[in-house]
Amino acid sequence: MNELFEVLFSINTLTATLRLATPIALAAMAGTVSERAGIINLGLEGKILGGAFAAAYASSLTGSPWLGLLAAVAAGMAMGGLLGLFAIRFRADHVVAGVGLNILMLGLTGLLMQVIWGTRGASPTVPALPTWSIPLLRDLPVLGPLLGSHTPLVYLMLLAAPLLWVWLFRSPAGLRVRMIGEHPEAAATVGIRVQRMQFRCLLLAGALAALGGAHLSLGHLSWFSANMSAGRGYMALAANIFGQWNPLGGALAAALFAFTDALQMRIQTLQIPWPTELVQMLPYGLTIAVVAGAVRRARPPAALGRHYGPDGEG
């Protein structure tokens, strides 16, 4: 049993956790940014998928994974803009608009895969992001093997969480965003442009979530496959709630989900006679349990999901 414990909590499991957490954490931060501004972001799943596709396609087209990242950002902002168009401009129900975006991206990526690669399952291999090995950091004990060499998106995620925290809780823009999510009319009366700010938050959120997707197709793997987001957008939303609409909390919650994912992979490689199906359910089961428990304590932004109009109607 002790041996099992050592395997499960080895450095390998923890590095895998970091890798698996990256897309969920980036998308959770995307959720935080948009929900703090009052827009429910159920479209994270679609944005991850769209980002993964755009990254893989641009990388295969140009041969440069860096241009792939750029394409993911562009696609993410386009999807964020689309959500904004519906949820802000046309005052559509946020949940419906978000789910619509998810369905759209599932269909669109499937269609484009057929058109471009003539396949339903997975794209050919595309140039992936390099693994960076950071001098000095990689030589440290414990931290070295854990943090020393990863793809750039893992480092981006690790940097983005504290930076977004500072932005949200210490910068003027962050204060304005929080005010909008709590009481948009109050924000408007002190001269904050509510809808413009919300729109910008959605663009930023789109870019973040799409980068999470790019990590799937250019970092974790080196191809795009159908529905490769596999519910990570919903897990990200749960991580965001569990993390109390805080970028650091969201990233930590994402790490928790990722850890169970890493665990279940480990368990499968060990010769333990547990049914695979049940083991694979672990991260999803945990998501449900955590959300069911956390939702009771969580206090969402007061104006989350509400439409704001310049005349106060709605």
Partner: peptide, 16 residues
């Protein structure tokens, strides 16, 4: 009131 319950008095006053 055009005030955000969760923010402090100072934050409410200086926003914008």
């Amino acid at each position: 009131f055009m005030l955000v319950d969760r923010l402090t008095v100072t934050e409410n006053l200086i926003a914008g």
